[in-house]
Structures are given as C-alpha cells and as structure tokens.
C-alpha cells in the first residue's frame, strides 16, 4: 500500500519550552486504520494538529497525498477531515447548516443530498433542524464527525472519538470506522482506550512523551510482545514450589492452589511439555489448566514503563 501521510523527523517545541514532539517519523498507509496510543500529554493531539495545519512544526516535513503541508497546504487540507477531542460547536446554529458551512469552508459546492446522506449515516437526520445546543453529548460528537465527513475527506483524524462515550455509541462509532475504511478512507485515531485499538485498528502506534515508541501491525505487535500464561490448578495446595520446578519461574497463588507459568508465544519452544512432565514427576495432580494471552493494554503499559525507565 502506498503511504498517504508521511511524517519525517517532526519536532515541535511550544513557546513555553515544552517539547511536545521529539522527532516523529511515521508513514500512514492509504486505507488503513491507525490507532495512536499514548497517555495524556504524550503528544498525540499535537501530532494531529500539526498534520492538519493548526499547529506550526518547529522542524521536520509532513506530506499528505504527496503534497507538502506547508507549501501546498490547500491541497493537503482538502484531503483531511479533523474531528477534535473537545466538542466545539456553534450553539445556536442548526445541525444541517453547520454541515453546509463545513462543506463550503473546504471549498466544495453545496450538495444537500450528500449532506443528508452523512446525517443519515450518523443517525442525525431526524435532528437536522435542531440547534446543536439542543442535542445530547453523544449526538454533538456525531455532529462533529458529520462536519468532517461533509467535505468528503480522504484522511480522517479522530482525536479521542470515544472519550466519555457510552458503550453502545462506541460500538456504533467503530462500525462507522469500518464502513469508512470500506470506502477507502484512511483513519487515524488517537485513544487511550486500548480496547478501541484492539477492536478496529490495523496498525498501532505508541507515543509517549513526544516520541513514537513503535508502529506495528496490531497482530504482529500482540504476537511479538504478547505473552501467554498457563495457570495450573492443583487438586492439593502446595506450601512451596517444589525444587524440581525451580527453573520455570512459577508464581504460586496465595492459597497455594495454583501455579502460573509465563511464556512467549514467539519462542521456538514454549517449554510447556517439559513443565507438565516436571509437575507430574513432582507428584502434583492437576485439576484444571487455563491459558491467557496478555492484552494490548498490558503490552502498552509495559512499553511506556520501559520508556520511562
């Protein structure tokens, strides 16, 4: 896949001296959903704002659709739709008018059929004649998305789209992201809900204090960094881990009723067979075995911690 957004060694230092981005290099492929994960203040919003032209980069290069965002800003901005984190809407304006405004602002002629279609897609059509201040929080967030879609962007930035949104709406939003991707729209979303990245992203980037720690295919990331655990339940609790099992770094549960063994899924040998044989030879009897894969969240927490350390 060709890349639609290219970021090269992007740095941003704010006037107050805060170094928000410390040399980010990132290629975003056309048609993918990329999730940018990172704690608050990691630089996610600064990165997005800089690509969209709201924040000026201190150094580095950004291109969108092959155009430079600084010298060919008209071309790049036409391609981009931005849904900001804060729900900012003109309170007294009608829903349909805010969409028409967005479309016009991005240099597109009026197209009521398209605007109606976007409103229907976001379940806002019945409220098209309402003032934005009369809508619920979830609806207002959808209006923001609708405004961004009203000018038919090729790249959509969703900054924390599901922050403070209920479960049902979150699932609706994920479904919408899938539909947009099917239409060929590239989506970059920032989130600190790992669940969200796990649910819809093709690739995951992790940002912490202005640095991009990694960008990888979600599946590869989970595989590479994913750990599995095997939990062995014993019929009789043990007081201590038998010496023959010392080499496996087992963790004994508090009541001694189970032992947990962690292993990497990528290893050639997981050591499970040997472990189980050793368990048997130690004279322990098993009542149950469970395995569990570490989630993206655990991977993320580990990465960020390692970065701090």
């Amino acid at each position: 896949m060709p890349s639609i957004v290219k970021v090269e060694d992007l740095r941003k230092t704010y006037d107050n001296g805060l170094e928000a981005l410390k040399g980010i290099t990132l290629d975003i492929e056309e048609g993918e959903i990329l999730a940018l994960l990172g704690p608050n203040g990691a630089g996610k919003t600064t990165l997005i704002s800089t690509i969209c032209g709201i924040t000026r980069p201190t150094s580095g290069r950004i291109s969108v659709g092959g155009h430079d965002v600084q010298s060919e800003w008209r071309e790049t901005r036409k391609l981009i739709g931005l849904v900001p984190q804060e729900i900012n809407l003109e309170p007294f304006e009608l829903v349909k008018n805010t969409l028409r405004f967005s479309r016009g602002l991005f240099g597109k002629p009026r197209n009521d059929a398209l605007v109606d279609g976007v409103l229907k897609d976001l379940a806002l059509y019945d409220r098209r004649g309402s003032r934005t201040s009369e809508l619920s929080g979830g609806m207002r967030r959808r209006v923001l998305i609708a405004k961004a879609l009203a000018h038919e962007p090729r790249v959509l930035f969703l900054d924390e789209p599901t922050a403070g949104v209920d479960v049902e709406l979150r699932r609706d939003m994920w479904a919408l992201a899938e539909r947009l991707r099917a239409d060929g729209v590239t989506i970059i979303l920032t989130t600190h809900y790992i669940e969200e990245a796990e649910a819809i992203a093709d690739r995951v980037g992790v940002i912490n204090s202005g640095e991009l720690l990694l960008v990888e295919k979600k599946s590869a990331l989970m595989q590479r960094l994913g750990r599995k655990e095997i939990r062995i339940k014993l019929t009789e609790p043990v007081e201590a881990i038998p010496d023959v099992l010392a080499e496996y770094d087992l963790v004994r549960s508090e009541d001694g009723g189970s032992l947990t063994y962690a292993y990497k899924t990528t290893g050639e040998r997981t050591g499970i067979t040997r472990l189980l044989t050793a368990v048997q030879s130690a004279g322990l009897t098993l009542s149950d075995i469970q395995t569990r894969q570490s989630s993206l969240e655990e991977i993320f927490v580990r990465l960020v911690r390692e970065d701090v350390a």
Partner: peptide, 13 residues
C-alpha cells in the same frame, strides 16, 4: 468556544 479549529484547518487562506 473552540470552533476556530475548523477554519484554521480548512483550505482557506
């Protein structure tokens, strides 16, 4: 109210 983001990110000089 923050809606200025849209004008600043639009292809408008």
């Amino acid at each position: 109210i923050g809606t200025i983001y849209e004008v600043l990110s639009a292809p408008i000089s």
